[in-house]
Simulated assay, not measured.
Amino acid sequence: MDPDSILNDDQLQKILDDQQVDGVEYKGENTYVISLEEEKVVAIKEYYSFMNYNWSIYTETAGFDID
């Protein structure tokens, strides 16, 4: 599966709010590192039922490096 394909997800598009995406890296377990124009975020696709999920987005903070 191509990691960039998550950018077609309607729910994720709303969260990212049309920010410029420079790249996507799959880390495993429905976890992705998304490189935006000014920062990197971790996006985790969390399922709450068989076919339903929400995206959780985490940004880099002091003392925590996403790389």
Rank of each mutant, 00 (worst) to 15 (best):
M1R: 09
M1H: 07
M1V: 06
D2Y: 06
D2V: 04
P3K: 03
P3L: 05
D4T: 11
S5P: 00
S5D: 08
S5K: 10
I6M: 11
I6C: 03
I6N: 00
L7E: 09
L7F: 09
N8Y: 01
D9S: 01
D9M: 03
D10N: 12
D10P: 15
Q11F: 00
Q11R: 15
Q11D: 08
L12F: 10
L12I: 02
L12Q: 02
L12P: 09
Q13D: 05
Q13I: 06
Q13N: 10
Q13H: 01
Q13R: 14
K14S: 13
K14I: 04
K14G: 08
I15M: 13
L16V: 12
D18G: 02
Q19E: 14
Q19Y: 02
Q19L: 06
Q20I: 11
V21R: 05
V21H: 06
D22W: 02
D22C: 06
D22P: 00
D22N: 14
G23Y: 05
V24A: 02
E25L: 12
Y26I: 04
K27M: 13
K27W: 02
G28H: 09
G28L: 04
E29L: 11
E29K: 14
N30H: 07
T31A: 08
T31M: 12
Y32R: 03
Y32L: 07
Y32D: 01
Y32A: 02
V33S: 07
V33A: 05
I34F: 02
S35L: 11
L36N: 11
L36Q: 07
L36A: 05
L36R: 04
E37Y: 03
E37D: 15
E37K: 12
E38W: 02
E38K: 14
E38H: 12
E39Y: 06
K40T: 13
K40L: 01
K40S: 13
K40W: 01
V41E: 07
V41N: 09
V41D: 04
V42I: 15
V42Y: 00
A43H: 04
I44M: 12
I44W: 00
I44P: 01
I44L: 03
I44Y: 02
K45L: 09
Y47L: 03
Y48R: 03
Y48M: 03
Y48C: 02
Y48F: 15
S49I: 03
S49A: 11
F50T: 13
F50L: 14
M51H: 10
M51F: 11
M51K: 15
Y53W: 03
N54P: 00
N54T: 11
W55K: 06
W55M: 08
S56D: 10
I57R: 05
I57H: 04
I57K: 06
I57D: 04
Y58A: 06
Y58L: 08
Y58K: 14
T59L: 00
T59H: 08
T59N: 13
T59D: 12
T59C: 01
E60F: 08
E60M: 07
T61N: 07
A62N: 08
G63K: 06
F64Q: 10
F64L: 15
F64S: 13
I66Y: 07
I66R: 07
D67E: 14
